[in-house]
Structure formats: structure tokens, C-alpha cells
Design a protein around this nucleic acid. Structure first.
Length: 437
RNA sequence: GGAGACGUGGGUGAGUGGUUGAAACCACCGCUCUCGAAAAGCGGCAUACUGCAAGGUAUCGGAGGUUCAAAUCCUCCCGUCUCCGCCA
């Protein structure tokens, strides 16, 4: 959510920003409602003030007859308040509805564009592997090796579910262990920052296994409830399954004021992500690219406003470091206005090379939300000088495990159908060289 | 799931209908004293909205309700603790 004061002072920027994000919202109407809101609020507060004042008079006054008269007068004023409050509430409801629709403004360096065609590749890394045979797609490799079984999962749970088996499961946990080691190591993080010329506190990440379900209200505060049709809703308990660890990591400091000396706060959360994938029928139906359920390691950080762009750069650097360690070619994409999320100020994706599909596919995203989420979450920082302000929040994938496994299978495949194990993961997989049948 | 206890400012904790947005203590910040520190003394110390300001309004887990007046009474919800049941 944006600050209403900011909207009032920057009507054109907000309006233009929404249009560029292809969000329809009537700012003009909001401002009219806001004037109305303030006017009605003043009326109600003046009346309340009168009641408060007279109530104290009643308490102090000894004259019984006067007391009875004042009580009677206040009873009438209260009726008036009630009516005005109802009017105010109606105004507020409408006001709130529009406020929730308004997207975050964007960073000046975000390219303007209508959809993904406007995204800009800002750099790439790695040599695409050259094969002496036609590289296969991950599901062909996986099925042949007996480590991916969508067939059985379809019968048990339906489409877009899978059984990961054997070495692929070991590789999943190898990735998790490898990543947690990196994110917990201050020296490595320091080196990553230094190599990219990022001047930032390299405090390590605290590993977290967060709740996999959240209350509707929590989701709303994270500005992630919409689109609802993509969320799994547990009707009996009115809970939602998380679509990302972000959804329960972000609210960890709800209604808190954090000391500046404790900043930045960095978490790496492990959780499944549940997605209904509404609207993607027929898209990526093969293999494990687009699932209703997949595991993910996610970085969620809270920092001072002046550091948040640097923080995002840092998170992207860590993503790149990981892919470089895994020797997976990738490209870094600056997402344009029309393709980015509503809460984002700036969004950077990483797409990893998938030889079997002969294309780059999205594996990582890094979202800088500025204070868009912290405003509703009410997460603040108390500065050294005593000033209290909203924190800035960053959220970034460190490993969407399924898609990383795909990239490994496709990039490391061999002519005999076996798959080499990336060097850095070997030690977590019994020192073995390859996945064989 | 059953029974009971409880939820007050950064912390401990007082407060059961009327100048209580909230005592006291601790922590923290500033000043005095000191060469400096400690100690002591003095002062400050919630957030949001609104207003040029003075000020006003709201908030004592959350949402409603009773009342001229609610931290205090009532209802529902959430959470914590203890005991029992169940369970990995």
C-alpha cells in the first residue's frame, strides 16, 4: 500500500505508474473520497471531543439536576455521532478498496513496456554447453532414469504433481545444504559483495522453516492475496496455503519497531510453494516446470530505506554466485513496468539456460518492495536519532528447487542418458560422479 | 478436543466504571557534577490520523456491545500458560 499523503502530493506519478503497470485505478475518485474522509473524520472527532469534555464535567459536577440534563444532552449527541460514523465508514470502505488496488511506483531505471516483450537482458554469464547429440528435455531424462514420475502422481493427485525419486531427491537436499552453507558464511557473502562492488553489511542469513499456511489478513497485508484464484484456500479453517516462503517470512516482524543496530535482517526460508496455476492450462504441461507444489528456498530481508537498492543488487549477486557455482548459464533480466508485480518497485529475474528446451527459463526473481508491504505490516525501524520510519523489504528466490533440478538435468546430461553431478554438489551426494539408472 | 488462568508502553508491573494515554521501577537518551567514568541529581522517553499552530481523535491482544463516561462490565475471536485427552 502506498502512503495517501504521497498519492495526494504525487497524483500524476501514481496515475502514470499504475497505467504503466496496466492497473486500472481511479486516482481522481480516491482524492475526492479522501477529502470527504478528512471532512467527515473531523466532524466525528469534534463531536467525540464534546462528549469527552462533558463526560468529565458530569463526573466533577455535584448538581444532580444538571447532571441528568447533561447526560440527556450527550445521549442526543451520541445519536448524531452514530450516524456520522456510519457515513464515515462507508467512505472509508470505498477509499480502502481503491487504496488496495494502487500498485507501487517504480524505480527510474525500470524499462517501460507493455508486457514481457519490454524486459531487458542486462547481462549474461556462462557458455551454453555444446552437445554431440540432440539434448533431451528434463522429463525424458528423468523418466528414463526413474527419478521423475508424473504418471503415478497424476493418478494419485492429478495433473501438475510429481513423484521425485532416488538421486533427484538426494540432489534436492544437496542443493539445500549447499545453499544454507553459503548464506550462513560471512566470508563468502563478503567476497560476493566485494566482487560486485557492492558496499553493504554482509550479515549472514538466518535459516527459517516458516508456517506453510497463513491467515487471509496476513496475506492481505503482504499484498499477495490477489490473484485469489491462484491460491489454495482451506475453507473449513479460512486459511491459505503459501505460494512462497515469502508469504510467511515477510510478516515475521509485523507490528514491530526494529532497532537500527539490528539491521539489516536477513532470512533464508525453506518451504513448499502451492499454486493453483489458474490461467496456465495447457502451458508447460510436461515434466516438473510448472507444478501445483514445489519446494523453494527464499531470501527475505529487511533493511534501511537508503540501502534497499544495494540490498537488491546484493541478493541478485548471491543468486548469480550460486548459478556460477553450479556452472549453469543464465541471463539477468530487468523486468519492465507491464510485466512486474504490483508491490514491486524494481524486479530483476534470472533465466537459466535449458538446453533441452533450447531456451532460457525463469528460475529466480528478486523483488524490491520498498515500504509497500511494511506500511500495512507495520514494520518499522527506530533510527539512531530516534526517528521511526518504515523498513524496506526485499524478497528473492535463492533456489526454486524443481526448476534448478531441471536446469541441472538438461545441462549435465550425457549421450548415454546419465547425468553428471555438479562438482559442488558431489560431497552432499556420497561423492558420486553421475546419476545412473 | 475438554477444564482452568491470563494477555497493560522497550522490559518488569500497578491499575476493576469518572481529570489514567496510563503509577512505580528497570532499560534508553540529554543535561549537571567529574580530568574521565561510576554514583548521585534534574529532565526526556508509545504510535497513528488530523490541524499552520494551540490542540483534537483513536489505540491497554483483536472485533463488536453496554454507558453521559470503559484498560476496568458483556459477547465473540486470536494468542499464551497449566492440567487432561490425542498425536509425529
Amino acid at each position: 500500500m502506498l502512503d495517501i499523503k504521497f498519492i495526494r502530493d504525487n497524483k500524476d506519478i501514481v496515475e502514470e505508474g499504475a497505467k504503466r503497470k496496466r492497473v486500472e485505478v481511479d486516482i481522481e475518485k480516491l482524492l475526492v473520497l479522501d477529502d470527504e474522509r478528512i471532512k467527515q473524520l473531523k466532524e466525528v472527532e469534534d463531536l467525540r471531543s464534546e462528549v469527552n469534555r462533558v463526560s468529565q464535567d458530569i463526573a466533577r459536577n455535584q448538581d444532580q439536576a444538571l447532571k441528568i440534563q447533561l447526560i440527556e444532552e450527550m445521549r442526543i449527541v451520541k445519536e448524531d455521532i452514530k450516524q456520522k460514523e456510519e457515513k464515515l465508514k462507508a467512505t472509508m470502505d470505498e477509499w480502502q478498496k481503491i487504496m488496495l488496488q494502487i500498485p507501487n511506483v517504480t524505480s527510474p531505471d525500470v524499462p517501460k513496456g507493455p508486457d514481457e516483450s519490454g524486459n531487458v537482458v542486462i547481462r549474461n554469464w556462462g557458455e551454453k554447453p555444446v552437445f554431440e547429440f540432440t539434448p533431451k528435455e528434463h522429463y525424458e531424462i528423468g523418466e528414463k532414469l526413474g527419478i521423475i514420475d508424473n504418471q503415478t502422481a497424476a493418478e494419485v493427485s492429478g495433473a501438475r504433481f510429481t513423484y521425485l525419486k532416488g538421486d533427484l531427491v538426494l540432489m534436492q537436499f544437496a542443493l539445500i545444504n549447499f545453499i544454507l552453507e553459503i548464506l550462513g558464511n560471512k566470508e563468502i557473502l563478503e567476497k560476493i559483495a566485494r566482487d560486485k562492488n557492492i558496499n553493504i553489511d554482509t550479515k549472514p542469513f538466518m535459516p527459517v522453516v516458516p508456517p506453510f499456511m497463513v491467515k487471509p489478513n496476513t496475506y492481505l497485508k503482504m499484498a499477495r492475496l490477489e490473484p485469489k484464484e491462484d491460491k489454495y484456500h482451506l475453507v473449513a479453517d479460512d486459511m491459505y496455503l503459501v505460494g512462497s516462503a515469502e508469504h510467511s517470512l515477510g510478516p515475521m516482524h509485523m507490528n514491530q519497531i526494529i532497532d537500527e543496530k539490528d539491521m539489516p535482517i536477513r532470512y533464508v526460508g525453506y518451504s513448499p510453494a502451492f499454486r493453483r496455476e489458474a490461467g496456465s492450462y495447457g502451458k508447460d504441461t510436461k515434466g516438473i516446470l510448472r507444478m501445483h507444489q514445489f519446494e523453494k528456498l527464499e531470501m527475505e530481508t529487511f533493511c534501511l530505506p537508503e540501502n534497499s537498492i544495494q540490498e537488491q543488487e546484493f541478493l541478485v549477486s548471491i543468486q548469480e554466485y550460486l548459478l556460477q557455482m553450479l556452472k549453469l548459464p543464465y541471463q539477468v533480466v530487468l523486468i519492465c513496468t507491464g510485466d512486474m508485480g504490483k508491490p514491486d518497485y524494481r524486479q530483476i529475474d534470472i533465466e537459466t539456460w535449458m538446453p533441452g528446451q533450447n531456451t532460457y527459463r525463469e528460475t529466480h526473481t528478486a523483488d524490491l518492495m520498498t515500504s509497500f508491504q511494511s506500511r500495512r505490516l507495520n514494520t518499522k525501524v527506530k533510527r539512531i536519532d530516534g526517528k521511526v520510519e518504515l523498513v524496506h523489504m526485499n524478497d528473492a528466490t535463492i533456489c526454486a528447487i524443481g526448476r534448478t533440478l531441471i536446469a541441472i538435468l538438461e545441462n549435465y546430461q550425457q549421450i548415454d542418458g546419465t547425468v553428471k553431478i555438479p562438482e559442488v554438489l558431489k560431497k552432499y551426494m556420497g561423492g558420486r560422479e553421475t546419476i545412473t539408472n
